[in-house]
C-alpha cells in the first residue's frame, strides 16, 4: 500500500467516528425536524401533514409573524447587551487579572464563581435581588437615588436588558477565562521589545495584545450567538413562556417553547410542527452571521 493511500485511509478512519456521531445526533434529527415542520401535531395523537403551511402561518399570518419579528428583534438586542458586556467588561477584567497585581487569584475565583451555578438558582436569586421589594431597590430608595422602587422586570423598558445582564453576570467567568487564556498566549518577547522601544502599557495592549485576542472574541461571539438564539432559560425561568411584561422579553427560544408546549396563559392550541418551523427559521437567521464569523476566524488562522 502506498503512503498516499495509507494516509487517505487513516484520515478516513479517523473521521468515521465523528461523522457517524454527527450523523446520528445532528443530521438525522435535522431531517426529522424538516419533516416535523411540515405537520400539525399537538405532541400526541395523529400528525396531520400540512406541507409548508406552518412556515406560511409563521411568516404571513400577522399574529404569528409579529411575534416572530418581535422575538427576533429582541433576541438581537439581548445578544448585543450580552456580547457588549462580555467584550468590554470581560476583556477589562481579564486584562486586570493578567497583571501581576495583589489578590489576583482571589479575584479570578470570584469572577468565575457564578459560572458553575445552575441557571435556575441564578435566575431565582437575581429575581429576588431586583424585585421591587428586593435589596437593590431598598438600597436605591434608601440612599435617595430613586423615590419609588424601579420595576426592573415589570417594565417593558427595562425587563429585557435586566435579563440580558443576568445572563452576562452568570457567564462572565466564561468570557474572562477565554480572553485571559488568549492574553497569556501573547509572546512576552514581543511585549518586552515594545516596552524597550518606548511603548507604554496602553500602546502595548492596543498593538500587541488586542490582535492576538481577536480569535478569542470571534469564538465568544459565535458561541454566545448560537446560545442566546437557541436557549431562553432566564426568560422561561423568570418571566415564563408568556415572556412578559407584554411580550417585551420574548426571544426566539420562548416563542418556540410557547408554540410547542403552550404558554402559561393558554396551553391548548399547541403545535410542535410550527415550533419546528420556528426552530429552522432561527437557524436560517443566525447561520449566515455564524458562518461568516467562523470563516473569518479560519482565514485569519
Amino acid at each position: 500500500m502506498s503512503y498516499a493511500i495509507r494516509e487517505r485511509l487513516e484520515r478516513t478512519l479517523l473521521l468515521v467516528p465523528g461523522v457517524v456521531l454527527y450523523g446520528l445526533f445532528n443530521f438525522i434529527p435535522l431531517l426529522g425536524l424538516l419533516y416535523l415542520s411540515q405537520v400539525r401535531w399537538r405532541g400526541i395523537g395523529e400528525m396531520h401533514y400540512v406541507g409548508l403551511d406552518n412556515f406560511r402561518q409563521v411568516l404571513l399570518n400577522p399574529y404569528f409573524r409579529d411575534q416572530l419579528f418581535n422575538a427576533f428583534f429582541q433576541n438581537v438586542i439581548f445578544f448585543f447587551v450580552v456580547i457588549g458586556s462580555f467584550l468590554i467588561i470581560g476583556t477589562g477584567l481579564a486584562l486586570l487579572l493578567s497583571f501581576r497585581t495583589w489578590g489576583r487569584k482571589t479575584y479570578q475565583t470570584l469572577f468565575f464563581l457564578p459560572y458553575p451555578l445552575a441557571a435556575a438558582a441564578v435566575a431565582f436569586l437575581l429575581d429576588l435581588f431586583v424585585n421591587t421589594r428586593g435589596p437593590l431597590n431598598a438600597a436605591l430608595t434608601g440612599l435617595g437615588i430613586t423615590e419609588a422602587p424601579i420595576p426592573f422586570l415589570g417594565s417593558e423598558d427595562t425587563a429585557l436588558v435586566t435579563l440580558a445582564l443576568f445572563y452576562s453576570w452568570h457567564r462572565m467567568g466564561f468570557a474572562i477565562m477565554l480572553v485571559l487564556s488568549a492574553i497569556l498566549a501573547v509572546r512576552n518577547d514581543l511585549l518586552e521589545a515594545a516596552i524597550l522601544d518606548g511603548a507604554n502599557r496602553l500602546q502595548a495592549i492596543r498593538h500587541i495584545v488586542m490582535p492576538v485576542l481577536a480569535p478569542a472574541f470571534v469564538l465568544i461571539t459565535v458561541i454566545i450567538m448560537v446560545d442566546v438564539f437557541n436557549n431562553a432559560d432566564y426568560t422561561l425561568l423568570i418571566m415564563g413562556p408568556e415572556a412578559g411584561p407584554l411580550r417585551s422579553t420574548d426571544v426566539m427560544g420562548t416563542y418556540l417553547f410557547r408554540t410547542a408546549f403552550g404558554g402559561s396563559a393558554a396551553s391548548v392550541n399547541t403545535n410542535f410542527g410550527m415550533a419546528a418551523a420556528i426552530g429552522l427559521l432561527t437557524a436560517i437567521m443566525i447561520m449566515p452571521a455564524a458562518i461568516i464569523l467562523a470563516l473569518r476566524n479560519l482565514r485569519r488562522d
Binding site: Y63, E242, L246, R247, A265, N269
Partner: peptide, 18 residues
Amino acid sequence: LNADEPSYAQLVADEVAR
C-alpha cells in the same frame, strides 16, 4: 372562542394586561 390562535384566553391575557 378558543379553538384556534389567537385564542380568547391568549388575547385576554395580552390585552387586559395592557
